[in-house]
Simulated assay, not measured.
Amino acid sequence: MVTQTTNQTEIIYPDCDGEPMSDNTKQFRWIVTIKEGLEWLFKNDDNVFIAGDLLWYPVEGNNVIRAAPDAMVIMGRPKGDRGSYQQWKEANIAPQVVFEVRSPGNTQTRLDKKLVFYDRYGAEEYYLYDPDKGDLSGWLRRDGRLDVIDQMLDWVSPRLKIKFNMLGTELQLYRPDGEKFATYVELATSREQENLAKEQAQQELERSQQELKLEKVRSQQLAAKLRELGINPD
Results as ranks from 00 to 15, higher is better:
residue 226 L to Y: 15
residue 181 F to N: 02
residue 168 G to K: 13
residue 222 L to E: 15
residue 20 P to I: 06
residue 59 V to Y: 11
residue 213 K to H: 11
residue 56 W to H: 09
residue 57 Y to I: 05
residue 32 V to Y: 02
residue 185 V to M: 12
residue 38 L to R: 02
residue 130 D to K: 07
residue 114 K to D: 12
residue 96 Q to C: 03
residue 186 E to Q: 10
residue 11 I to L: 07
residue 153 L to T: 07
residue 40 W to G: 06
residue 104 P to R: 00
residue 150 D to K: 08
residue 191 R to A: 07
residue 64 V to Q: 07
residue 109 T to D: 00
residue 107 T to S: 15
residue 13 Y to E: 03
residue 141 R to E: 12
residue 104 P to C: 03
residue 63 N to R: 10
residue 93 I to N: 05
residue 107 T to H: 13
residue 67 A to V: 02
residue 30 W to L: 06
residue 58 P to G: 08
residue 14 P to I: 02
residue 171 L to N: 03
residue 46 D to N: 15
residue 152 M to C: 09
residue 5 T to K: 15
residue 107 T to V: 12
residue 24 N to F: 04
residue 86 Q to R: 01
residue 220 Q to F: 06
residue 191 R to W: 08
residue 96 Q to G: 00
residue 106 N to S: 06
residue 85 Y to N: 02
residue 18 G to H: 07
residue 191 R to P: 03
residue 28 F to H: 00
residue 25 T to L: 09
residue 175 R to M: 01
residue 223 A to W: 05
residue 2 V to A: 09
residue 213 K to Y: 10
residue 175 R to E: 03
residue 99 F to N: 03
residue 172 Q to P: 10
residue 69 P to N: 08
residue 127 Y to N: 05
residue 94 A to W: 08
residue 44 N to T: 13
residue 54 L to H: 07
residue 156 V to Q: 00
residue 16 C to M: 14
residue 108 Q to F: 08
residue 225 K to G: 04
